[in-house]
Design a protein around this nucleic acid. Structure first.
Lengths: 211, 211
DNA sequence: TAGATTGTTAATCGATTAACAATC
DNA sequence: TAGATTGTTAATCGATTAACAATC
């Protein structure tokens, strides 16, 4: 594995390829070309080959890629050959939905616990996992060596949650609260802003109409 | 307004600036500099100025930007001075969460109706909006001149929903199903893949550990 | 005028794409 | 060998950033 800086978009695409390859694997197909992966993933064949080239040579010239092997390689690259321990804080509508989200559950993510400050929510069970009181957050993370923390609280609470995450030793944070978080350099942080998506669309529609 | 091709990232950032400016406006601050906007939005001051420069001159050299005016300008740019009619199809956990999501509701989005094929879900009410039977989708879109369709169905149903959206005349589609959709060129399509986010994080953690 | 901050340019950086040599 | 498809290079394209002239 060479140490080029790998574009984040490449990683996101690898994740898409891997989901497509799952389907193809179920269908029992053995070989696949970069063109077919590209079509199934909504990108160009050059993209597929370039993305893979960052990590090695997985195909056979003139032939294509072995579906099962390539899929395994990509999962390994993404770190999805390991189990990752996750907690989620803020069991509102979005938090509850994510706690039960198949896209998270189907992968190797192990949802260890859910947390909320609201006593009315504590004790509720989502997909077999009960909501714990917020006060136990740090303890649970430390005792279970949790890797990733998900924030689905209001923006006003997000930094406080983040500080506890950091204090307790999570390696990465996925933040759905619309705010700017401060974390030490060694913590991976990814912000997802759902509202932005509709606004990109309205901009696109509006600017078309102006033409 | 010049007709440079504007980076999508610029639009996404404008959306973030506008949310930050809302807060600042509430606090009653009158003037703000690119540096302050940058800090509040987690980007660089150069970014803020460049992003705004695509659309005009909104500040005063040596002084800064008038918060209220700038905010209004950005909302206008994003098309958020108009009301947009939205429908959502697939009232599972994620769909229900989005239907009730403040980030969508706070803006000028008008959720016209929710749809599901499941008779057990039809009639349920979310934030004052009842779930309608899927068969009525096309009719409702046409009668209400719906602008945007949101898809939160399983991937297997997403193309079928898309085709009805297109047929009925929506202008844009926001797709949360993990699949590649085909739409005519004049329809704006934005795919949001929630699962990708955790996988980018696991990649980052895993590649750090290998170093 | 001195200080401050914008708007804009030009340089840098990075990602995408096309094309083709390598090779099955 | 002829046909096919990968892996890789080099060209293109686009976005970020630093720097500074303009100007309040």
């Amino acid at each position: 594995m060479k140490s080029y800086k790998i574009p984040e978009a490449t990683i996101a695409r690898l994740s898409v390829y891997s989901r497509f390859l799952s389907q193809v694997e179920v269908q029992g197909l053995e070989l696949i070309s970069s063109g077919e992966i590209a079509e199934g993933s909504g990108v160009s064949p050059a993209h597929v080959r370039k993305d893979l080239a960052y990590f090695g040579e997985f195909g056979t010239r003139g032939v294509g890629y072995n579906v099962k092997e390539l899929h395994k390689h990509i999962l390994k690259i993404l770190g999805l050959d390991e189990k990752w321990k996750v907690v989620l804080v803020g069991v509102g509508h979005l938090g509850a939905a994510l706690a039960m989200y198949r896209g998270f559950r189907d992968r190797k993510f192990d949802m260890v616990a859910l947390f909320d400050v609201d006593p009315n929510k504590v004790g509720k069970v989502y997909e077999g996992i009960a909501v714990s009181p917020f006060e136990q957050l740090e303890k649970v993370i430390k005792e279970n060596n949790v890797d990733i923390g998900i924030i689905t609280t209001p923006a006003s609470e997000a930094q406080k949650v983040t500080d506890i995450f950091v204090q307790a030793g999570v390696k990465a944070i996925l933040n759905f609260a619309p705010c700017v978080l401060t974390v030490p350099y060694h913590i991976e942080l990814r912000n997802v802003d759902l509202a932005v998506n509709l606004e990109v669309l309205t901009f696109n529609i509006a600017s078309k109409q102006k033409k």
